[in-house]
Amino acid sequence: MAGIDPTLPIVKNLLLLDSEGKRIAVKYYTPEWSTVASQASFEKALWNKTSRTNARAEAEIIMFDNVVVVYKYIGDLMFYVTGSLDENELILYTVLQAFYESVTILLRQQVEKKTVLENLDLVLLAMDEIVDGGIILETEPAMIASRVTMRGADGEQAPVPITEQVGLETGLETFSKALASAKEHLARSLLK
């Protein structure tokens, strides 16, 4: 992160915690929390300060420990985006929206801990598509979701036809496996 233009908006971390404050998926981009303990204590402190607030209808915001955090709860999940004290709060809010809305699309509105864990790959990829090393990469939720599922860079076309792919696999697999695979592809094609 060293040497980055100080005028560039930087996301310090993206956190997805469960309703007890345990981490599900987190990504830290800046050196403030370089150790196990510091990350854990940051998450704990953050959770303690925010868990009793109501951030369901609208995203909430808190300033503590020299950072600004915007956050939102959906189901039994808590989404957090952290930025520096002098960051434009609305930019962080845009990132937060991108985070929870893209996850909502990817999980087909089933935003709860169970589905997140079952589709952890999608959530991790979404985080990877939103922020790259602290720099905001994309904030359009539909776009993020389509990039995560590799359905196309701009959320429109599928780069590789599904049928062709399934066809490649079937010769090597048993019928039931092929069926399961087809089901999965169908499900994925419905995602967006």
Binding site: I4, D132, G133, L137, A153
Partner: peptide
């Protein structure tokens, strides 16, 4: 998506 990827990477490489 490609252009953004290259530009963001360049921002990181600048250091």
């Amino acid at each position: 998506v490609v252009a953004s990827a290259a530009l963001v990477s360049a921002l990181h490489l600048l250091g």
